[in-house]
């Protein structure tokens, strides 16, 4: 028995010792999406280029920012990719530093909207996406965001929880459809609240939607374009809506942690990710739409993603500051109207 303990103690020490012995380690924090493809396209090639080791933490944007906040005194991650609003939140909380764009050789090749999304120099966009409604075209017709709440449809839809990246944009568009688009989203939240018993679920993880759609538990849900591809593989008549109010969406950005000891390595990694080569490969796997304007996509990829500067400009995005200043209020009204 004692031998086992010594052995496991030794393993433990080796494990921690090995981590320290490694000369260059870059710790990144990303969305959990498509890690197998990222590894193949981004992580492994980059490790070869830099001769360093990448450690990857995954999770959703809010959760990972919360963790960075907890580790503020001794940052664990060197760079993170988060949503635009979370980048602003991190910047206000003093968790991140200005991005030294002079070290990014691909910076000038980015779409203008991606160069400095929050206008504070603290983040660089690497992908953007449209958010609209995936729906069963044989069961329903979607021409407006408000159609989802029609009595005959409401009991067959999933709506994104307000705490997810898709929640506020979807509510924002619903507000436009209802003709009451105030920043507090009160009217939209109240409208969803009225239907809360009928709506199947307020989803937090979009992966579950594929299962629910396949089981015919739901017919429609507002989703980000980056989760669209799996729906097309179900062999069901599922369409992407183009509501008359337009599509909304979001942008994901890269940030550098304040106090990171690997600043240059982090910038080198960001530059690698922003290169036309990497951005093309990721896009061809139908994961992230490119933010680098030199990327030329095949028709299949272009059709499945949110491609091109014109498209990007047409998306109705909630400004980060509005999102951040109202977030607490949204969650409060959501909990009052929907949560119970």
């Amino acid at each position: 028995m004692k031998k086992v303990i010594f052995a496991s103690g030794a393993v433990l020490m080796l494990a921690t010792g090995a981590a320290q012995a490694q000369e260059k380690t870059l710790t990144i924090s990303v969305y959990a999406l498509a890690q197998d493809e990222y590894k193949q396209i981004i992580y492994d090639p980059f490790e070869k280029v830099c001769g360093c080791k990448l450690v990857v933490e995954t999770g959703n944007s809010v959760e990972r920012i919360a963790k960075m906040e907890a580790n503020k005194a001794n940052p664990v991650v060197d760079m993170a990719v988060v949503s635009m609003a979370d980048a602003l939140a991190a910047s206000r909380a003093g968790l991140i530093d200005k991005v030294d764009t002079s070290k990014l050789s691909n910076f000038d090749k980015l779409y203008d909207i991606a160069k400095d999304p929050n206008k504070d120099g603290m983040s660089v966009g690497y992908t953007f996406y449209a958010t609209s409604i995936a729906y069963r075209s044989d069961k329903m017709k979607i021409e407006s965001w408000a159609d989802l709440l029609k009595p005959e449809y409401a009991s067959h839809i999933a709506w994104p929880n307000v705490t997810t990246n898709q929640g506020p944009p979807a509510l924002y568009m619903l507000g436009q459809a209802l003709g009451k688009d105030t920043p507090d989203l009160k009217a939209a939240i109240a409208a969803v609240g009225e239907k809360k018993d009928e709506i199947v679920t307020f989803y937090e993880k979009s992966s579950q939607l594929v299962q629910l759609m396949q089981q015919e538990e739901i017919w429609a849900a507002p989703i980000g374009r980056f989760t669209w591809a799996p729906f097309t593989k179900l062999g069901m008549p599922i369409a992407w809506a183009t509501p008359k109010e337009g599509q909304t969406g979001g942008m994901n950005v890269m940030v550098v942690t304040k106090g990171s000891k690997n600043r240059d390595l982090a910038l080198q990694f960001m530059d690698f990710w922003l290169s036309a080569d990497v951005q093309t490969k990721v896009a061809e796997k139908m994961i992230d739409s490119p933010a680098n304007k030199e990327v030329k996509l095949s028709e299949a990829a272009a059709n499945n993603l949110t491609y091109g500067e014109e498209t990007a400009k047409s998306l109705k995005l909630i400004p980060s500051a509005v999102a951040l200043d109202n977030r607490a209020g949204w969650i409060k009204s959501w909990n009052e109207a929907v949560g119970q």
Binding site: V62, E63, A66
Partner: peptide, 20 residues
């Protein structure tokens, strides 16, 4: 249950990881 039917355990997790 998800966020539609919260219990104390799931509410606790939400309070920590979403609302801090």
């Amino acid at each position: 249950g998800g966020s539609k039917v919260l219990m104390l355990e799931t509410l606790l997790y939400q309070q920590v990881s979403v609302s801090n």
